[in-house]
Design a protein around this nucleic acid. Structure first.
Lengths: 222, 222
DNA sequence: CGATCATTCAAGGGTTTCATTGAATGATGT
DNA sequence: ACATCATTCAATGAAACCCTTGAATGATCG
């Protein structure tokens, strides 16, 4: 490792960083961690892998400096150490979107008819929140909402939309958001609410990108 | 591959993109390609691997959409398909610099005393070129210079500096640049010229970053 | 056409990575 | 102290990756 010439030693280090994001499970873990701190068990459960497996991947990323572990009681909470990791993920996504036909295909078949949903940009949403002309809808699970959400956002999960439809003002435009650009939940919410006649659009990205952009967030007090 | 659920299919695609940069040789190839088009043999020679091996890595990256191949005569020239790849590399570098102590150590021991060299930012150099108060010095090999260089740059390689020292005006400040932030050549040039009493600094990045930033470049006519 | 050269292909063996399993660790609560 | 629970460790086998070697391809040139 350090017996090679310095130039290739550097490339070896850079490659180690890239390897840390070069596995589907690790990307899934990072997406979860971008929402906030999580215990190993919760993470393993969310991405549907065994606890031991999740633990191994997390340690791999800890060695690369991507995540940090904190013990509290009998749980160990992992979190991102640096928002630069989000930039790396964004760079990977951008290339994948542009260059892999396969991604386009998957996205289209999964997020049916993406274009018709006309996503709202972050800046546009900032304006509309200030002008108080939109209802911001957070469709993530309650615990993620509690760890942080957009200012004034209402938290209703997709499967509860029908039950709590009365909480939404049909006269106001709604902007729904979720975990990130590839999170399904907000697509589903938009589809469901449109079927009910609401004027609703998606935010282009999700909560982590909003926070990383330095825009204000709220948390639920415990 | 496509039998899995769409979410993990997406992550698999993203991981494939990351894997394309997750090997030291591939990173080295990309650094070379960032300078411009190159044939397989030249690339293999530059990074000191066998032709077959270089060919394999190049094909790996072609499958990922990073590079394109063009046949001309009996040579096949590879080139970057997209400047977004440079963003990805920059994101990897930034994380490595920030989080891997090892990188810092290697950089320090190799690029002795980096800080004392006070790099010049791109914007600062643009100003100084416009004011015509600097000599811009390109220390890369002649063929890379020919493919593209900063406006008005003089091309002198490090091993020829002594011979051509008369070509440089000792009264003007010199800004040296090279292939990229981790290219040794410009460090060596700065050290050599300082020893001769010149007022000389490095450009913070290199030619590829300059071009990717949309700044003007010149090429040598054939 | 036949020779030559750059590149790619195909097969091999060696190494690394990955998921699973069951045991070990370390903190909590009785 | 003992039982419990979350996490990590260690070992195993399977799969993926990587480099080398030698043959195949496809273009140029005599």
């Amino acid at each position: 490792m350090s017996s090679k010439d310095p130039k290739s030693a550097l490339f070896t280090q850079f490659a180690a960083v890239a390897k840390a994001v070069a596995h589907p499970h690790r990307l899934a873990l990072l997406e979860q961690l971008a929402q906030g701190e999580r215990s190993v068990e919760v993470l393993a459960d969310r991405i549907r892998v065994s606890t031991a497996n999740a633990s191994q991947h997390l340690q791999h990323m800890r060695r690369a400096g991507f995540v940090a572990a904190r013990r509290e009681g009998k749980f160990i909470y992992y979190s991102l150490t640096d928002d630069a990791v989000l930039n790396l993920l964004a760079a990977v996504r951008r290339i994948a979107e542009k260059q892999l036909a396969e991604v386009e295909r998957v996205v289209r078949s999964y997020f049916h008819d993406r274009d018709s949903l006309e996503p709202v940009s972050r800046m546009e949403l900032v304006e509309r929140i200030r002008a108080d002309v939109v209802t911001v809808l957070d469709v993530r699970p309650e615990d993620e909402y509690a760890l942080g959400h957009l200012p004034g956002a209402v938290n209703i999960q997709v499967h509860e939309l029908e039950k709590r439809i009365a909480d939404l003002d049909p006269a106001r435009e709604i902007v729904a958001y979720c975990r990130g650009p590839y999170c399904v939940l907000s697509y589903e919410a938009v589809a469901a609410l449109r079927a009910r006649g609401f004027n609703v659009r998606r935010l282009e990205d999700g909560y982590p990108e909003w926070r990383a952009a330095g825009l204000p967030v709220e948390t639920v007090r415990v």
